[in-house]
Amino acid sequence: MSRDVQPATTSRQGRWRDDRGSESVELAILLPVGLLLVAMLVVGARIALAGDRISGVAGIAARDASLARSAAAAQQIATETATTALTSQGLLCIDVQVSVDTSGFIAPPGASASVTVAVSCTVDLSDIGGVAGLPGSRTLHDSATSPLDPARDLS
């Protein structure tokens, strides 16, 4: 079985066109898409890493606050502990909020009570994109409750 195959012509007037330059056009189209995918991967990894680092910070602060003798001291200790823990984890927050529920301190000794700490950290994403930067930030949250010692002495 024989086929009649016509050879490809190389002249511009021929039936087939030359493919020179098509790779450059493909690269010009696909390069921005590839860069966008890499940027999204970096942002996602940064958020996941920051979320991993903030977990447990409120637990440390709540545990330290539960050892305090007063509600005011618990508030101060929890704030200092959370800030120190975030710094030691290498998490650079542009805004740190520490909320401490010290209502358990009004319970009399012998009664079960607890202290709850909520920590929020806003991570800036503008330093990821280099000179242009990516707009926006992400706020991460962590909370924990720690029991107060029922045999505590408030004196």
Rank of each mutant, 00 (worst) to 15 (best):
P135Y: 00
A39H: 04
T10D: 07
D124V: 09
D101E: 12
A72D: 15
R69T: 15
E80M: 09
W16V: 13
S70N: 12
T81V: 11
Q89K: 11
P32A: 14
A85N: 03
A61K: 05
P109E: 12
R12W: 00
D149Y: 02
L148Q: 09
L37W: 02
I47E: 03
L134D: 04
A58L: 09
P150T: 06
C121R: 03
L27S: 14
P108M: 08
A107T: 07
S146D: 05
D64R: 15
S22W: 10
P32G: 14
I106A: 14
V119C: 09
V96K: 03
D18L: 05
E23G: 15
T122H: 02
G44S: 10
Q75Y: 05
P109H: 04
S146T: 04
S88P: 00
V42A: 12
L35F: 13
D19V: 15
R138P: 00
D18N: 14
S112H: 01
G21P: 01
I54M: 06
T122D: 11
T145Q: 14
A68M: 13
S88L: 11
S66Q: 07
V42P: 02
A118V: 11
G56N: 08
F105P: 07
R15A: 06
S146L: 07
R69V: 15
S55L: 06
V123T: 08
G59Q: 12
A151D: 11
A68P: 06
T84A: 15
G130Y: 06
I128V: 14
P108H: 03
I94R: 15
H141E: 12
A118R: 12
T9P: 00
S55C: 02
S70I: 12
T79P: 00
L35A: 13
W16T: 13
P135Q: 08
Q76C: 01
V131N: 09
I29G: 08
S146P: 02
I54P: 01
S114L: 07
V5W: 06
G110S: 07
D4K: 06
A144I: 10
D127C: 03
T81L: 02
I128R: 05
L27T: 14
I54E: 06
V57H: 04
A62M: 11
Q6D: 08
A28T: 15
T9I: 03
C121F: 01
S66C: 06
T145I: 10
S137K: 03
V100Y: 05
T145S: 13
T83F: 00
D149W: 02
L30E: 05
D18R: 10
V5A: 10
A118N: 11
A48F: 13
G34D: 05
T9W: 00
G136R: 02
Q13F: 00
D142T: 09
L49Q: 14
T83I: 03
I94K: 11
S2C: 01
I128E: 04
R63Q: 14
Q13L: 09
D101Q: 11
L49P: 02
S155P: 02
V96Y: 00
T116P: 04
G136H: 03
V100C: 08
I60D: 13
G51W: 04
T139Y: 01
